[in-house]
């Protein structure tokens, strides 16, 4: 393997929110890396820390929450220790984000052209006229008809799907190297979801852009991403190529997520929901956080689960679980005479 520097490398990222009843570890020891042009799906249930991971990378965690440890290396530079002006110059320029709810993302009292042009002018010395032309082009690229007219409109004059297209146009206008998309289709109708998905996918391929697609929907990620990382209670519990992870899921939680997807072709087959709910991030157990809901729970699960390469598809497929681990205390106990 060549030692090409990854575009983004997240190392042992930790983000915490102090609350009146203790510290919530929203992101705990999260590591992953992303090559140029690669698409990563970050998957998990609500409240598992996917969105906070995205915000942590961009330095947009709202106080009192804060990133307490780790590194976020973007082209080799640590975004977490960078001075604010340098970080601002990268945000929205080389590294952009699309948010979940298009109804809330655009400023309701500013015209679309203002919101596009200011994004250009924040990062380059460009005349208003030139910026206007770029804005026009950008709206056209995301499939908005009659962009010249639509530029002069306000957000409330657009539908949800159209607003998300505008938000995508804003995020892409400086031709970033990496986009973080935080469930950008969740708030939209199914048909619009497909359109937005196809649009983002096409733009990424066309421009060799990297993408982190945050979603709770494994079926969307299956068709979109190169690699997938499954998060549970602030930790990545399984990661690998889409093929290895979805065809040979090693973590009971990943299997649970796959079992909970309704299949179109097998009518009447039973869905297998994962019992219980995600644990409170305030008092996570010392051992595996999924143990309470896991069908294969055993004695070793009371200890912190190991993070190891599971063997499908080489070293890139990793899992954080005692099952199938060579040094599982249970296995050692069983082996003992």
């Amino acid at each position: 393997m060549s030692m090409v520097q990854p575009l983004l490398e997240v190392n042992k990222l930790q983000t915490q929110f102090p609350t009146s009843s203790g510290i919530a570890k929203a992101v705990d020891d999260v590591s992953f890396s992303l090559a140029a042009g690669e698409i990563l799906g970050l998957v998990g249930e609500s409240g598992c820390g996917k969105t906070v991971t995205g915000f942590s990378i961009l330095g947009l965690v709202d106080p009192p929450g804060r990133v307490v440890g780790g590194q976020v290396l973007f082209k080799g530079e640590d975004l977490l220790t960078m001075d604010t002006e340098r970080l601002r110059a990268i945000r929205g320029n080389r590294l952009a984000m699309i948010f979940q709810d298009p109804m809330m993302t655009l400023n309701p009292v500013l015209r679309i052209d203002t919101q596009l042009i200011e994004t250009l002018q924040a990062h380059q010395d460009i005349s208003r006229a030139a910026a206007y032309d770029r804005a026009l082009e950008a709206l056209g690229e995301v499939g908005i008809a009659e962009p010249a007219q639509r530029l002069r409109a306000y957000p409330h004059q657009f539908s949800g799907g159209m607003r998300q297209r505008v938000a995508i146009a804003i995020a892409l206008i400086n031709r970033p190297d990496l986009i973080i998309a935080d469930e950008p289709t969740t708030a939209l109708d199914v048909t619009i979801q497909g359109q937005i998905l196809a649009l983002v996918q096409a733009l990424c391929r066309e421009r060799q852009m990297s993408l982190i697609w945050i979603s709770h929907d494994l079926s969307v990620v299956a068709g979109l991403a190169d690699r997938v990382a499954v998060m549970y209670a602030g930790k990545i519990v399984e990661s690998g190529t889409v093929r290895a992870t979805l065809d040979h899921p090693a973590h009971p939680y990943t299997r649970g997520l796959l079992g909970a997807i309704p299949a179109l072709h097998e009518r009447g087959s039973r869905l297998l929901p994962i019992p219980g709910t995600t644990p409170s991030l305030l008092n996570l157990p010392a051992g595996c956080a999924f143990a309470d809901r896991c069908a294969q729970v055993h004695g070793a699960c009371a200890l912190p689960p190991p993070d190891f390469a599971v063997g499908h598809d080489g070293p890139s497929h990793r899992v954080r679980c005692w099952l199938n681990h060579a040094n599982s205390p249970n296995r050692i106990a069983d082996a003992a005479p």
Partner: peptide, 27 residues
């Protein structure tokens, strides 16, 4: 400050003066 549009404005890399005096103040 807690609204998504302010966070989005910051994610766009706008200078904080513009976020405060245009995006926040106008609302």
């Amino acid at each position: 400050l807690l609204q998504d549009y302010v966070r989005f404005a910051r994610a766009k890399g706008l200078r904080s003066a513009r976020v405060v005096f245009v995006h926040v103040l106008k609302n």
